[in-house]
Design a binder for these strands. Structure first.
Length: 264
DNA sequence: CGAGATGTTCGGCT
DNA sequence: AAGCCGAACATCTC
């Protein structure tokens, strides 16, 4: 599930533990989720630290603790955050649990494509501060999008939207939504898009990100009823614009759906 | 039971 | 040499 807006939603779930101290940590440290993290230090240092705040950027989350401790979380394909009672007993897929007096903050991920990072220091870690410019940032301009498309001239535009360094936070369903709104065929090569169409892509990318953050991220509610999103999942889905049948193909290595009539 | 799943990374090929 | 593609990662659901 987790794309931009879902990640922001899950980040806030752990707000239930804000200003509370971690008393105990349970984790499956041998799992690949913890690759690159110093698991021993994490387990040793976290007890006694207080959750002070958090932030989401694109598909990453950063949790800030007292004692200069930081936790990074990426949800991968099937990761979730939740809050359980303090006597919670972790099961197979609950790879990290931060126990507090009144809560247990749980990170679970059956497929384990997610990731946990640990950092000790006064300032946020480099892997966080080096994240690319957000699609919703004022500095994210049509010119930047156009320059990126020019550099990736031979790449299908669908694949381009999934490049996280260019469109951070955009995932498979958001990419299809953006292309449907922009009326661009997902297989169109980036190099063939006119400047005007690149600007449309820019505009719709921002719009889809902004509206998702205003709906999905708030309460996990669905995007607006007239979005392509609702047609995308069902075999009988139809184009919300012209009612025509949709097509499905693998583009950029991912299942892609689009309306062949209005997306060119 | 086989296929596919809302993500990332790596290795190999052009 | 940069850039593109497919496979791999691990598990569950339809």
């Amino acid at each position: 599930m987790p794309e931009l807006a879902e990640v922001e939603y899950y980040r806030k779930v752990w707000d239930g533990g804000l200003r509370r101290t971690i008393t105990r940590v349970a984790l499956h440290g041998e799992k690949r989720l913890f690759r690159g993290a110093d698991v021993a230090r994490l387990a040793e240092q976290m007890p006694g630290a207080k959750l002070l705040g958090s932030e989401a950027r694109a598909k990453q989350m950063l949790f800030r603790f007292s004692l200069d401790l930081w936790l990074g979380v990426h949800l991968g394909m099937t990761g979730k955050l939740r809050v359980e009672p303090p006597d919670f007993v972790p099961s197979r897929h609950d790879h990290l649990v931060l126990f507090q007096k009144r809560h247990a903050l749980v990170f679970s991920d059956p497929r384990m494509f997610g990731r946990v990072l640990f950092h000790e220091g006064r300032a946020a870690p480099a892997w966080w501060t080096a994240l690319p410019l957000a699609v919703t940032a004022p500095e994210f301009t049509p010119d930047l999008v156009q320059a990126f498309l020019a550099r990736r001239a031979r790449l299908a535009v669908k694949a381009a939207l999934l490049v996280q360094s260019a469109f951070p936070g955009v995932g498979n369903w958001m990419a299809d939504e953006i292309l449907w709104r922009a009326k661009i065929a997902p297989a169109a090569l980036c190099g063939t898009l006119t400047k005007a169409r690149a600007a449309t892509l820019w505009r719709e990318a921002r719009e889809v990100c902004a509206v998702s953050l205003a709906t999905v991220a708030v309460d996990f509610s669905d995007p607006p009823d007239d979005w392509f999103y609702h047609q995308r999942w069902t075999a009988t889905g139809r184009c919300p614009r012209d009612g025509g049948p949709l097509r499905t193909a693998t583009i950029g290595g991912r299942t892609t759906r689009w309306c062949p009539r209005c997306q060119r």
